[in-house]
Design a protein around this nucleic acid. Sequence first.
DNA 1: CGCGGTGATGAAAACGTTTTCACGGGGAGA
DNA 2: TCTCCCCGTGAAAACGTTTTCATCACCGCG
Lengths: 357, 357
Amino acid sequence: MTVTIRDVARLAGVSVATVSRVLNASAPVRDETRTRVLQVAKELRFAPNSAARSLSRQRAGALGVILPDLYGEFFSELLRGIDQEAQRAHHSLLVSSSHHDSRGIGAAVRAMRGRVDGLMVMAPDVSGPSLAEVLPHGVPTVLLNGPEVDADVYEITVDNFGGARDMTRHLIAVGHERIAFIAGAERNHEASERERGYLAALHEAGRGAEPSLNVRGDFTEDGGWRGAIALLALADRPSAIFAANDAMAVGALSALREAGLSVPDDVAVVGFDDIPIARFLNPPLTSVRVGIAALGERAASVLLAALAERSPPGRPPRRAVFPAELVIRDSCGATAGPPRHPARRRARSERALSNPS
Amino acid sequence: MTVTIRDVARLAGVSVATVSRVLNASAPVRDETRTRVLQVAKELRFAPNSAARSLSRQRAGALGVILPDLYGEFFSELLRGIDQEAQRAHHSLLVSSSHHDSRGIGAAVRAMRGRVDGLMVMAPDVSGPSLAEVLPHGVPTVLLNGPEVDADVYEITVDNFGGARDMTRHLIAVGHERIAFIAGAERNHEASERERGYLAALHEAGRGAEPSLNVRGDFTEDGGWRGAIALLALADRPSAIFAANDAMAVGALSALREAGLSVPDDVAVVGFDDIPIARFLNPPLTSVRVGIAALGERAASVLLAALAERSPPGRPPRRAVFPAELVIRDSCGATAGPPRHPARRRARSERALSNPS
DNA sequence: CGCGGTGATGAAAACGTTTTCACGGGGAGA
DNA sequence: TCTCCCCGTGAAAACGTTTTCATCACCGCG
């Protein structure tokens, strides 16, 4: 049915070994033989079976990606970065999402056994110990934005704490008195880090954290919308809303608009992540730039590097922290009024403040 | 190094065949033997090598997805739908993106040979014939939103033409005189279908298509932004802008805001795709709902069904067209003014007009 | 009491590659 | 002229599963 290397060998009048050598350029072959083999291979539209190849070399030429979700611009950006780097190194990508608990992650990990050479796991909802339990032995692994884990893995994290703290500092500096926070999902590592940053900035400014201004969200637009509605219902309305990610900021903007409030004049709104769409929102969203695609690229490149050096297994894993820097746009009220000259305005409002942490 | 089925067999004191039978429940095994094997397997954290398994069964348990790009909410939604359906059927997903030409697609297809049982290919930038050339033989394939192709494949398409025509009709019905269009990328099948729909509606209304009102975009926010800027520079400004996808509509909204124009009062803006964020924009974006995730789910389910019936190869492939229906929100000016009661307003403005085509 | 069936198992043959090993045949150097 | 080495090639052994085929014991039935 399907054409194998044997068919090519037979028709070219050589052994399968020779065909393999030609196709992989793994050993010298007489010129005339080579062209004949290539000719036959092309005629037959031969493509080697990757499963067989993976088995024979002990190497799949693919990377696995395990994500908690696939909803929204964040994950597509991340995946885009990963894919870009993987493709550069001629590796395929195995993607599996909607894994929120360690059981699901474990299942995904096991399903990937033998199909991938390395793993990138994003599991902000799972605790360190239970994650360590399901991670594979002997497969190089990069953990993304997760808790610290006691296992032989690489960890790449965004400075969630620092970013959130800087953003809150900025809001304070601009003069906001009542700064509300729409937090992320419960038991989510990123969510709690960002919340911690928010609280730390309030604390260092000598302000108490008012519980009613800290509402729980879930990282979705709808969650942000509901959070904003709840905040607007307060007797003493906040003057600024810090959403723990951009998706929720989008929802909050929408809620404020529906309530007939102006942003930033009545209420300031800021987010976190700086997803690509943030600068195109109305008003353009002040956010914390994460460099999502770059993060993905970096994760893939770390993994590929680990793969290249034939994995000395005892090597101590490294934990890298990606900086998170403020991007000031209009939604926080820190820039000038409505623009006259779009091009210039864009340039000015796009200026990024470097993260002092 | 890694633990194989042999290790399990040895430690459990049985043959590899028995271990396999236990793990796959593929044949009766004495109860005591079974528990012993399972015990050992768990102790050793044994996970079967998928490559070997794929090779032995002639079946990989995975689906391939080939995409032109991974930027923006559209693709993450599509992928989300695909992944959901694939996971339901216990299949993994192999993803490869940034394939705009047939050469790249061909390479991706070949790389997937043996790793996947079926293929989903989205290739709006490639012509039918050159696509047919690189598609694999003997691997069930679903083509997404592409041109009609002369090959043994399934095709699932959105009613790009009908959706764009209906949207244009709607704008005409609402009273817009000068309706501009920001088209998609050149030589892109979806782009040209949507443009065709726009032109058809103008034509049937007895209006000529004014070339200056039809500018080229590229399906990105920036493209939409530039397109809108170009349209605003016209001596006789359009009263409505129809962007060929939502990302460009977002860019257009941003440009209009920067120009100090109000949407929809000064200019109406509408999009296509109804990405999840569309309803949260400011103003909420009137668009053509595509049901992106559902489209992905459907593609995966068609593929899985084809796989299940052991592929009778001569069967005539089917072409299915997904409906595209208008979603009227505020950005086209067809709804009432600023709301007082967010909840009710949301419900009303979300009403979808069913597609009469 | 013999016989067919079935339940539980193991040995071994696939699956399609890559890679090791072996083997000629030539040169080059002694 | 002899030896050594390298080039080009083929046979065969991996790689880790699943699955077929055989074997054996046992049970129920005639």
